[in-house]
């Protein structure tokens, strides 16, 4: 991680802070633009054609979204003097923010772009880049629209990911699915959303970290049995956790969210959510089956070395992933 990257990373974080702590819509827009501006250098490498293409696409989509955002804000300011609630304008604002996030039906850029990014950049794209649009969304939410969108999110995330073999695209579709859950949590309360985001980021960070370490981008690369045995087990547990199986920590946010959704009587939506999470679980398990649960021939010409300090980090994270729920009951008792 060289100093360039650290610089742009810093500006990225700062831009989010600008956006969420401003008291004017303009400030939000400024934050969004700075976000775009600082993310592009993080992505693009002049040597790699894929990442250049990805950065270009990213720039195009995000700038269109930003322009629509500022346009809708100005229209809102002009026509309604910032006080009333109008359906169409709120839908316009929400649409542009949804496009920023990569939510259905404006998500088509998301899998495309993530194919060209490294795992760390993917991690940023999947977690950090959602914060600003989400918070801005919560300022001017159109409930009916968002309900439709979040349902579609979960469905598309599940169905789209079923036929993929690239790990990055898979993670993207799972991110779209979880985006649906996050939109649901925004409907209820911002605290809840923050909790969900933290849990999800924790899980995704472990996954991205693992894949970064092993330098794997496709499912068939996971067949190598040279990987350390404990790494494989942790991969298994974290995938199951991500899928939302109790008693791992990934179940925790889903549990809380279902509870609150049902207390608001959203029966059908909750049903669709849980059924699509089953589909997502299906293809997670398909991945880990191949890698973890079968014995393959040991390849002698390909070895994967792991440094010790990485191992400690992995162990700690996975311990947290397994026992997180139980420990949290001790804290919140």
């Amino acid at each position: 991680m060289n100093s360039n990257k650290m610089f742009f990373l810093f500006i990225l974080f700062f831009s989010t802070l600008i956006s969420i702590s401003s008291n004017s819509w303009f400030g939000c827009w400024i934050g969004l633009e700075i976000n775009l501006l600082s993310f592009i250098p993080l992505i693009s490498h002049s040597t790699n054609l894929f990442s250049t293409e990805a950065s270009l696409k990213y720039f195009l989509t995000q700038s269109i979204a930003s322009i629509n955002f500022i346009f809708s804000i100005l229209m809102k300011m002009t026509l309604m003097k910032n006080f009333e609630m109008n359906n169409f304008i709120s839908i316009m604002i929400n649409s542009s923010l949804l496009m920023k996030m990569g939510s259905v039906p404006f998500h088509f850029w998301f899998p495309n772009i993530s194919e060209g990014l490294s795992w760390f950049n993917n991690f940023l794209l999947m977690t950090w880049q959602k914060i600003t649009p989400m918070i801005l969304l919560s300022y001017y939410l159109n409930k009916n629209f968002i309900i439709i969108i979040m349902t579609l999110n979960t469905i598309i995330g599940a169905i789209g990911g079923l036929n993929q073999s690239s790990l990055r695209k898979l993670m993207t579709f799972s991110s779209i699915n979880n985006l649906g859950w996050m939109l649901a949590s925004i409907l209820i309360s911002e605290n809840l959303w923050m909790f969900y985001l933290i849990m999800y980021s924790f899980l995704i960070s472990i996954m991205c970290f693992f894949f970064q370490l092993l330098n794997m981008f496709f499912i068939n690369q996971l067949f190598i049995s040279n990987i350390n045995y404990s790494i494989k087990m942790f991969l298994l547990i974290n995938f199951l956790s991500l899928g939302g199986l109790p008693p791992f920590i990934g179940f925790f946010p889903k549990w809380i969210l279902i509870n609150f959704l049902l207390s608001m009587d959203f029966f059908i939506i909750t049903f669709i959510f849980i059924m699509t999470s089953l589909i997502i679980l299906f293809f997670y398990i398909r991945i880990i089956y191949s890698s973890f649960l079968f014995n393959y021939i040991n390849l002698k010409w390909m070895k994967i070395f792991l440094k010790n300090k990485n191992l400690i980090f992995i162990n700690f994270l996975s311990f947290l992933s397994i026992t997180g729920m139980i420990l949290s009951t001790l804290i919140f008792l």
Binding site: M92, S95, L162, N163
Partner: peptide, 26 residues
């Protein structure tokens, strides 16, 4: 599986069409 294959037909697309569709929506 068939739904997913059907969906992929829409996913793998020309970028211009996607951007154009967003603008049409707006």
């Amino acid at each position: 599986k068939n739904y997913s294959i059907f969906y992929n037909f829409y996913q793998v697309n020309n970028f211009k069409i996607y951007l154009f569709s967003f603008v049409m929506w707006m």
